[in-house]
């Protein structure tokens, strides 16, 4: 059941008035122009324990995303695809309005919007994460952890999710008698990515459209439109969310155009902060692979009945490490 929320922070009337007056002059409370995005910082690989991770700071908003992977049977209707799960936690330390407990409707909505934005355009190449069709596939958990809430959790979470996925190392799958186990001491390569996707949140305040709203602005806003944009300039998802207001038909069209234009800022941030780390990671992985080679070339002697399985394992490792070269098994 969804209830009208009681306004969580009370923006004093005077401040609201100031905000509206400033907006008519094309300026916001923090000095930004209407279509300015706050300063972006991305720290990929923030959690070494995770297969992939990134800490994103969007102004004062702070979101940490960790990616973990394991091996599961696929869904019945997609035997040839890995499984992607997106979950969001609004941890109580992030805001005085967050309470401990299971995800509320806002956290569920955020996770589902990011999930769809990634899934529909096939941002992650799930078809390359199959160990045995219909039996064993990789499952990717994207866990969004909001650490500080100063508005626009959508864009910060989408950016952190994308950065974490771009720098996710797929662990080695080792075949055992009944299926596979995950060996996290070795990596088979980077997670195969088809598309990069970001979201751009547009808020409507005093009949003006503003990009990347702060918490204060969100509280005053009539409503928001979150638009997912892919690296090839398509609209990968939309969600009207928050507030009790509306957008006119023209405002919807303008907001989508604005989002398509402003997405470049986020893509630029991914290029600046994440791409170098990704390349470094790729290099490191291929080096460690070289170092591991003697081991795989000189396997320990085995009783003959086990040999077949070992061959399978090696074949499988090769298949995984050549994932990026569109080879499938």
């Amino acid at each position: 059941m969804s209830l009208t929320p009681s306004t969580s922070i009370i923006v004093p009337k005077l401040k609201r008035h100031t905000m509206e007056v400033l907006l008519t002059r094309g300026v916001r409370l923090d000095g930004r122009k209407l279509d300015d995005i706050r300063e972006i910082k991305i720290e990929p690989g923030y959690i070494e324990r995770a297969e992939g991770s990134a800490l994103v700071k969007l102004g004062e908003t702070m979101v940490l995303v960790g990616v973990k992977m394991d091996i599961v049977p696929p869904f019945l209707d997609t035997p040839n695809e890995g499984v992607l799960v997106v979950n969001a936690e609004f941890v109580p330390l992030a805001s005085p309005t967050f309470e401990p407990g299971p995800p509320d409707e806002n956290a569920i909505e955020l996770a589902r919007v990011i999930d769809r934005s990634l899934r529909e355009i096939k941002a992650v190449a799930l078809d390359k994460l199959v160990l045995e069709p219909g039996k064993h596939v990789w499952r990717i958990y994207v866990d969004i952890y909001v650490l500080n809430h100063d508005g626009n959790l959508f864009d910060a979470s989408a950016l952190a999710s994308m950065a974490a996925l771009m720098t996710t190392r797929v662990p080695q799958a080792v075949k055992v008698e009944e299926g596979y186990v995950v060996d996290r001491s070795r990596y088979a390569g980077l997670l195969p990515i088809n598309h990069r996707v970001v979201t751009v949140a547009i808020a409507k305040v005093a009949n003006k459209l503003i990009v990347d709203p702060t918490y204060e602005e969100e509280e005053v806003a009539d409503t928001r439109l979150v638009v997912a944009v892919s690296d090839d300039g398509r609209v990968a998802g939309i969600q009207k969310t928050g507030g009790t207001g509306y957008l006119t038909y023209d405002e919807v069209l303008r907001a989508v155009s604005l989002a398509l234009r402003k997405a470049a800022v986020y893509f630029e941030a991914l290029k600046k902060f994440v791409e170098p780390y990704r390349l470094e990671l790729e290099k490191k992985l291929s080096e460690s692979e070289e170092a591991q080679k003697p081991e795989t070339e000189l396997p320990r002697p085995l009783p003959s009945r086990e040999r077949e399985e070992v061959v399978e394992e090696i074949v499988h490792e090769e298949a995984l490490s050549s994932e990026d070269s569109s080879e499938e098994h």
Partner: peptide, 9 residues
């Protein structure tokens, strides 16, 4: 307004 999927402008 929700869009699940991909469209050009």
């Amino acid at each position: 307004l929700q869009l699940n999927g991909v469209m050009t402008h």
